[in-house]
């Protein structure tokens, strides 16, 4: 029946594992991140909103959606209105190409890894555009820093993504997951260095604390988000939460075997949740551990250390593959 297949595709795009499911786990991971970050600082974090504070991100979202939406008269109106919507669609689109329930993603084609890298670059460019269109000095500075930072982390991240792709002989995320499942081997075992580089690069992509240079609160108010208020800010915050899911989901798929595991009874979605939660905890642990770098330290450091290390990782992987004669 053709219409049943169509209905199933529609439901899986909209509800599970599509948009609604992704938004729910994005809000849940924001709560996990805030609680764990607070625990590391000897605080409690949000505890009074719903059971154990689990509804805190929902309350934040509803409050921002219901607030007044100010558009300063000097902003570039079209870009200023388009940026929050576009920045929300980017991580959602990229998440459709990441396997969540089984070894197949909702949308998968040869080369979708490259497409995901492209979408993640677009997020940085949209941050720059958002800062630029605000015409506020702090926003402009933050947007400039977001674009500069992207020049630093994009290259080592893309090179490190090629490690699992070389292993699987494919540029499709779903096929990389299937290769790991069929060989019973996680790509992190052959790419430990690449895994570390990707974690560092994603800290910069997510604008988390060692690399929260584009929204450095003590220097430039709130960076490129300074002028956004009300529902525009709500969409931007939701987009950043979805980006956290995207980052942990992509690292899970490429390096940790995706939604498969050694015990076959546990369903794929549970493996996905376990692995991404561990990654979220790693991200928030690093956030609590470090202080902010300067923008020049970040860019020169990533070109001096991360890029050579990621190339070294590829060379080591090729030598290892030749030695093992895979």
């Amino acid at each position: 029946m053709a219409w049943e297949v169509g209905l199933l595709a529609l439901l899986s795009t909209l509800i599970y594992p599509g948009i609604i499911f992704l938004v729910v786990i994005a809000l849940f991971y924001q709560w996990v991140d805030r609680r764990f970050y607070a625990k590391l600082q000897n605080r409690y974090g949000p505890i009074y909103t719903g059971p154990r504070g689990i509804l805190q991100p929902v309350a934040d979202l509803i409050k921002l959606l219901a607030k007044e939406d100010i558009e300063p008269s000097a902003v570039d109106k079209q870009i200023f209105r388009a940026v929050p919507v576009l920045i929300l669609t980017m991580p959602l689109t990229a998440l459709f190409m990441i396997p969540i329930t089984g070894t197949w993603a909702l949308a998968s084609f040869e080369g979708d890894l490259i497409f995901i890298i492209f979408l993640m670059t677009l997020i940085a460019i949209l941050a720059f555009l958002g800062g630029w269109s605000s015409t506020n000095i702090f926003s402009t500075l933050g947007g400039m820093r977001a674009a500069l930072q992207a020049l630093g982390y994009e290259v080592p991240m893309a090179v490190s993504f090629m490690g699992p792709a070389i292993l699987a002989g494919s540029l499709s995320v779903s096929k990389i997951v299937q290769w790991q499942a069929s060989h019973g081997l996680w790509a992190i075992l052959l790419n430990p260095l690449g895994f570390g580089i990707v974690i560092v690069a994603f800290l910069a992509e997510l604008e988390r604390i060692p690399f929260d240079i584009p929204e450095a609160e003590t220097e430039i108010v709130a960076g490129w988000q300074t002028e956004f208020s009300g529902r525009k800010l709500a969409l931007i915050r939701l987009a950043l939460d979805l980006e956290l899911v995207l980052a942990s989901g992509l690292v899970t798929a490429l390096f940790l075997g995706g939604p498969t595991g050694p015990i076959p009874i546990i369903p794929g979605i549970a493996w996905f949740m376990i692995k991404t939660l561990v990654l979220v905890l790693i991200f928030s642990n690093l956030r609590a551990l470090f202080a902010r770098f300067r923008i020049d330290q970040m860019v020169s450091g990533s070109w001096k250390y991360l890029v050579p290390l990621s190339i070294l990782q590829i060379v080591m992987l090729e030598l290892l593959l030749g030695w093992l004669s895979f």
């Binding site: 805030r34 607070a38 600082q41 000897n42 605080r43 409690y44 974090g45 949000p46 505890i47 009074y48 909103t49 504070g53 805190q56 309350a59 934040d60 409050k63 607030k67 100010i70 609160e217 003590t218 108010v221 709130a222 988000q225 300074t226 002028e227 956004f228 208020s229 800010l233």
Partner: peptide, 22 residues
Amino acid sequence: LMPRYDIERFGMILRGSPRHAD
């Protein structure tokens, strides 16, 4: 805001920009 009293328990966050604040 610090560990002893921690008003983030009530969902209060200190924001840098007046556009984000209530």
